[in-house]
Structures are given as structure tokens and as C-alpha cells.
Design a protein around this nucleic acid. Sequence first.
DNA 1: GAGTTACGGTACGTCGCGTATCATAACTTT
DNA 2: AAAGTTATGATACGCGACGTACCGTAACTC
Lengths: 215, 215
Amino acid sequence: MRVSRGATSVSAGGLSPTRVVRPGRPRSDKAHQAILDATRDLIVEHGFSDLHLEHVAARAGVGKSTIYRRWASKEELALELLLALASPHIAIEDTGNTREELTASVNNAIRGLTRSPFGPVIRALLSHIAVDPALGDPFRATVVQARRAEIAAVIGRGIERGDVRRDVNVDVATEVLVGPVYFRLMFGGELDDEFANSVVDTLLQGFATPRQSTM
Amino acid sequence: MRVSRGATSVSAGGLSPTRVVRPGRPRSDKAHQAILDATRDLIVEHGFSDLHLEHVAARAGVGKSTIYRRWASKEELALELLLALASPHIAIEDTGNTREELTASVNNAIRGLTRSPFGPVIRALLSHIAVDPALGDPFRATVVQARRAEIAAVIGRGIERGDVRRDVNVDVATEVLVGPVYFRLMFGGELDDEFANSVVDTLLQGFATPRQSTM
DNA sequence: GAGTTACGGTACGTCGCGTATCATAACTTT
DNA sequence: AAAGTTATGATACGCGACGTACCGTAACTC
């Protein structure tokens, strides 16, 4: 059995619930965070279906019962982890330049998937998100919704600046911008700046030749 | 990877293996197909992580050992099933009309996911495809590659007709056409004709206003 | 018929799940 | 400082599925 109980770097964005401190032990959030960290590491290393809570407990330096006291299932634990990891990669700054902002939209998604534990974790959970509403619905309601809103804002600013057609559908815009990124995540292909630029070029100009733009 | 003993071709083109008939029982392929059918039904009903080979055996009217004799693991069984289900939804007819063909490209993907068992099965296997090369590599090498080639042909015909810009990157074209479909498969949203049309409209015209097309 | 082989069935050890129980450590209250 | 409260780590348990091993037998060839 593995003994390395390395709690590695602390991930971003923890939750801070209003907690009433009562007699007895004070629900040290160190344990809470240690469990999430161990879960993250083990998912990254072995994937979700080989995530075993007894290993999580061992690596977090915690009893198995402590985990079951706080989360009803492996899925709930994974969901909390996923939402915590997702949030940092969504915001897009208003730079005044539409192309820049669109590229940032794609690059933000890419960087979240390639340069942070969010990538391996969501990869491991894709099926569950797609199949299990208990995971999928909260994820859609928070992460996906936030990303749609952020890109809607980018498109909106582009329209104001006169750079973007007024009739662009913002939901579809999100999907053609970020969908390709997830396509490559699943089905292979480089996720780099060149890809981001290529997607944005394609989307800004469109497929059609100028003379055919009313085809 | 140890595939079944070559009794069936892994891809969906019918089965015509050179079979050496030897004494003893003749590897009835009825059993083989019954196992695949049962696997498909159970994945559709309960998802991949609740797919239990003892149930597959029972539903297929087969001993559990028979399954283990032919496939090394649940994943290999699922892979063969997946490849068999994927192929029918890829070909795109040359209609002479670029917009029609692009719409068909998106609609083919949508129909494969919504109107056939391929949808539930790939949903259940997304994570494994994204994480496990033993599943992902064969899938990419066959299904994804075929789809890329098919869409490359559509783009090529569009260029010949003068409808599509000559500098469109065909890989990126595949991704912006089909990526949105998989995005919605995972993260929610209707998968219907309206969506397909909306994607194609967006992609043909592009985001940019005409006067900004060189932005 | 004799020979061969895959077959269905079953029993087995292993492992992770999720629950229950318990003595104890950590902290609050008085 | 002592008493009271509560979450904690540890351990044991039953359950179910995994994957293996072994059987007697059915199906087919020669």
C-alpha cells in the first residue's frame, strides 16, 4: 500500500459555509480539504472508476467513516471537487478587442483543461456528467451556465463595437467556440494557442467565400 | 489488446472472417451477437459502470465464462460494441449543395446520438475514451478519423464549387461542426434540426460583420 | 462411433462498497 | 479544572461483482 500522504498544493476556491461551532471537535476543515486534495490526486492518477474511498481516506490521513459522514457517495464527493476546480477558468476580461476576447474564451477553456487538475478530473467524470443528472445538473447549472454567460458577454461587447453580427445566437456561439475544445479533449488533437487562433479565425470569417455569403 | 479471436471484424462492415472449422463446437456467432446485443441493452438501460457481466451472460443466455473466453475485459467488449454501432452514421452524400451537405454533416452526428443505441453507449463510454488509450486510440483511428475524412470531403467539394474559402482548415472545420453537437450531448441543450441549421448558419457566415471581415 | 472443443454452470477467493460500532481526542461550557 | 459534548480514526461486517478454475456435456468433425 502506498504511504505517501502528500497533501500537495491547495486548489483554488474552497467553500466557506456559515458554520456554527459547537462543543466537541470543531469539524476541522483541514480534514475536509485534505479529502478533496486526496480525491483530486487519485482521480488524476487512476481515473474515477479506480477511485476507492479507502485509498482516499488513507492518503488524506482520515478514517473512511469521516468521508461517508460528509458525502453520501463517491459521486457527490467528485461533484464538489469538480465545481471547486472549474470556477477559476471562466472569467474573460474586457480588453476592448473582440478578437482578443474570443481567443481568450477559447484559451481559457484550453488552459483549464491542460494546465490544471480540472482537466484530468473532468475527463474522468465526463460520462457521469453526461449520464447522471445528480452530477450533470449541478454542473450545468453552475459551470456551463457561467461559461455561457461569460461568452454571451463577449459576443455582446463585440456587437456593441460593431465587430460582430447582431444576429449571432449566443448559445450557439458558446458551443462553436468551446465545443471544438472538448471535442479534442475527448477525441484527440493538440490543445494549444495555434488551435485557439485557428478556431477563432474560422469563426470570425466563416466558411463561406465573400461572394457566397448569402448562400 | 487481445480482441476476440478474430471471429468478427471489429469495425461494422459485416463479418467475413476466414474461419478454420475444426472439430468440436463451431463457435456459433449467434452467441457472439447475443452477447453484444445484451451488452448494448444493459448499457443503454443502466450505464457502463452498472454493466455487470453476470447480467450480460444471463440476458444473452450464455455462461459467464463464455464472455471471458472472448473478451479480456468489460472495456474490450464495450469497444467492439461501440465501433459496431458508430459506423452507420458517418457517410455524407454528395448533393451538389454545400449548405445541404454541411447540415447533413451535423445532422448525421445528431441522429447517431439521438436515434440509435450509439448515443447512450458513447455517453456511457466518454470518460473511458478520453482517458484509456486502449479504448480511445482504436476509436479515434476508426470512427473519428472516418468522420474527419468525410467532412474533409464535404469541405473539399464546397471549395471546388466556390462556396467555401480555400484556406479553411479541414480539421478545425470538423471540430467546429461536430464539436458543438458533443458539447450539447455532455452539457445539455436540444439536439435537433434547428440546432443543426443554427450551427451551419453561424459557421457559413461567421461572427464578423461584413465590414469587419478582415479584423 | 471416436475424438475434439467450446459450451453453460458453478464454486471460489478477492476486493471495494457502505454501514455500524466503539473508545478516544478535541473542544466548549460551567 | 472538571464535566459535558461531539466528531474522529479504527475496525469489523455483510453484500455484490470481479475474474479464475473446474466440471460434465452438447455439438460438431473425421
